[in-house]
Amino acid sequence: MADNFTAIIYPTKNLEQAKALFTTLIGEPPAQDTPYYVGWTVDGQNIGLNPHGFEQGMTGPIPYVDVDDIKARFDALVSAGAAVLQEPTDVGGGAQIATVKDADGNTIGLRSAPAA
């Protein structure tokens, strides 16, 4: 998996309303539609809606970078001065996410696929 921005997750308070808006924007129904996450893939870019995002501390969209070793990259970012928002956490099926904040207050997300 190459390190690149491949997901942008938006927090939403009204999942059905947001799903309708993004379906109109993207022009097709979501590829993944669950009560805890709704997502589309457009030209390799994942666009997702998180109905629990605000409860989890999200204040706006978060870009996620896919990495092979989430713990190592997370630790390297913290060593470089990033503030911890969310330690690497399993989000189902062995996939993990983590978030940090840079010195300017920007949230950076990391995402790793399940181990093979």
Rank of each mutant, 00 (worst) to 15 (best):
I26G: 04
Y10Q: 03
P61C: 04
T99F: 09
N50S: 15
Y10K: 01
G92E: 11
Q56N: 08
G39V: 00
G81S: 14
A95K: 00
V84D: 07
A31M: 08
A80G: 11
A7K: 01
D102I: 03
V91N: 09
L49G: 00
Y37S: 09
D104Y: 05
P114L: 00
T12I: 15
G48S: 15
A98I: 04
T23Q: 07
D33I: 00
A18L: 07
T12W: 09
I108R: 09
Y37K: 10
L21I: 15
G27T: 02
N14G: 02
T24I: 13
L49C: 10
Q56I: 01
V65P: 01
I108N: 08
S112D: 05
R111C: 08
P114V: 13
Q86E: 06
N14Q: 14
P30F: 06
E87Y: 15
E28W: 10
Y36R: 12
P11L: 10
P63V: 09
G60W: 15
A116M: 12
L85N: 09
K19F: 03
Q45M: 15
D75N: 14
S79N: 11
Y10S: 01
L110Q: 07
D104T: 11
W40R: 03
E16W: 12
A18P: 03
V42G: 05
Y36F: 10
D68M: 14
P30D: 01
I62C: 06
V100K: 05
A98H: 14
V65S: 09
Q96D: 04
Q96K: 14
T41H: 03
L25E: 04
A72Y: 08
T23W: 02
T6C: 08
P11K: 04
K101Y: 02
D66M: 13
G48T: 09
E55M: 10
G94Y: 15
N14D: 09
W40D: 03
F22V: 07
I62L: 07
N14M: 03
S112V: 00
A82F: 15
Q45H: 15
K71N: 01
P29N: 05
H52G: 15
G60V: 11
A20L: 14
G81P: 02
I97L: 12
T41Q: 11
L15G: 08
G109H: 04
K71P: 00
Q45G: 06
P29R: 01
P63M: 14
G57Y: 04
I62V: 13
V38F: 10
T24D: 07
P63N: 07
A113L: 14
N106C: 12
I70F: 14
A113E: 00
L49E: 04
Q96G: 05
M58P: 05
F5G: 09
P61F: 13
A115V: 10
E28I: 06
T23K: 10
P11A: 06
L49D: 04
K101F: 12
G27W: 12
T99N: 12
P29V: 08
I9P: 00
S79G: 00
K101E: 15
E55Y: 11
A95S: 14
V42Q: 04
D102C: 12
K13G: 10
G92W: 09
N14Y: 04
D43W: 00
L77W: 11
K19E: 03
